[in-house]
C-alpha cells in the first residue's frame, strides 16, 4: 500500500533527524570534554551517560515517584486555575464596568512570572505543598481568564442575534451560544495556560519541594551530577511535549474541525 509506505518514510525521516541530533550531541561531548578539554566533565554529559542515569532513576523508582507527585500537583493547580479562570472570565464579560477596569490589571498580572508569586505564597501557606499548587494555579489562571474573555467578547454578533430571535436569553445565551461559539479561542487559551502552569510547577518544585521532577532536577545539581540534571530536563521536556501533543493538540484539532476552522485563521 502506497499510503503505508508514505507514513513509514515520514517516520524514518523524523527518526533520522533525532538520531543526527543525538550524534551531534555525542560528538560535541567527545570533542569538547574528552579531546579538547574546554568543557569540564561535570558541566556536560554524553547521551550515553544521560541514558544510563535515566535507567537508574527508572529502576530505583525515584523517577516514577517524582513524576506522580508532579502530575498530582499540576492536576490540582491547573484544575483550580480552570475553575477560577472560567468564573472570573465570565464575570468580566457579564459585568462591563468590572471588565473595562480590570483588563489592564489582568494583563499586568499575566506578565508577572509565576515564580514571582512564590514569596507571597510562602508567607501565606508556608514552605509546603500548598505554595507550589498556588503558584502552579496562578501561572495559568490569567491565560485562562484572558482567553475566556476575548473568546466570548469576539463571538460573531450574528449568532447572538439569531439566537435571540429563536428565544434564547439570559443564562441559555451563555451556555448554548456564547460559550460554544468561543470554544476555539478558549481551547487555545487553556493550552497556553497549561504550559504556563507546567513551567511554574517545575520552578516551584525546584525551590520548595521534597519530591517531584523539579526536586530531583535540583538534587542533580546538589550532588553535582550533570547527567542527572540533563536526564531530568529531558523528562520534563518530553512530558510537556507529550501532554501538549496528546491532549491539547487533539482537543484543539477536534474543535477546529468541528467549527470548520482548519484552513482559516482563528
Amino acid at each position: 500500500m502506497p499510503q503505508w509506505n508514505k507514513t513509514t518514510v515520514e517516520i524514518i525521516r523524523k527518526l533520522a533527524f533525532y538520531l543526527i541530533l543525538i550524534i551531534v550531541w555525542e560528538l560535541s561531548y567527545h570533542f569538547c570534554v574528552e579531546v579538547l578539554c574546554i568543557w569540564k566533565p561535570y558541566s556536560f554529559a554524553s547521551p550515553i551517560a544521560v541514558l544510563r542515569t535515566l535507567t537508574g532513576l527508572i529502576t530505583d523508582n525515584s523517577l516514577s515517584i517524582a513524576i506522580l507527585a508532579s502530575i498530582k500537583r499540576i492536576a490540582q493547580g491547573y484544575g483550580i486555575s480552570l475553575l477560577v479562570g472560567l468564573l472570573v472570565g465570565l464575570i468580566i464579560v457579564k459585568f462591563k464596568y468590572i471588565g473595562e477596569n480590570i483588563r489592564p490589571l489582568i494583563l499586568g498580572f499575566q506578565t508577572l512570572p509565576s515564580i514571582g508569586w512564590l514569596p507571597f505564597a510562602i508567607l501565606w501557606y508556608g514552605l509546603n505543598e500548598s505554595s507550589i499548587i498556588f503558584i502552579t494555579a496562578i501561572g495559568s489562571t490569567f491565560s485562562v481568564i484572558i482567553a475566556v474573555e476575548s473568546g466570548m467578547k469576539n463571538v460573531n454578533p450574528l449568532y447572538i442575534k439569531a439566537a435571540r430571535t429563536m428565544g434564547a436569553k439570559g443564562i441559555r445565551m451563555y451556555t448554548d451560544v456564547i460559550i460554544p461559539a468561543a470554544l476555539p479561542v478558549i481551547a487555545s487559551g487553556l493550552k497556553q495556560g497549561w504550559s504556563f502552569a507546567w513551567r511554574a510547577l517545575i520552578a516551584g518544585e525546584m525551590l520548595c519541594a521534597t519530591v517531584g521532577l523539579g526536586h530531583i532536577l535540583m538534587m542533580g545539581r546538589e550532588v553535582a551530577d550533570i547527567s542527572q540534571v540533563m536526564a531530568v530536563m529531558s523528562v520534563i521536556i518530553l512530558l510537556g511535549l507529550a501532554v501538549d501533543k496528546l491532549i491539547f493538540a487533539q482537543i484543539e484539532s477536534k474543535i477546529m474541525h468541528r467549527w470548520g476552522l482548519e484552513q482559516g485563521p482563528l
Partner: peptide, 17 residues
C-alpha cells in the same frame, strides 16, 4: 424578538458547533 416572528439572515447564522 417575539415568538411569532422569525428571521433568516443573509449570512444564515447557522451554528458551526
Amino acid at each position: 424578538p417575539a415568538a411569532g416572528i422569525n428571521i433568516i439572515f443573509q449570512e444564515l447564522a447557522l451554528f458551526p458547533w
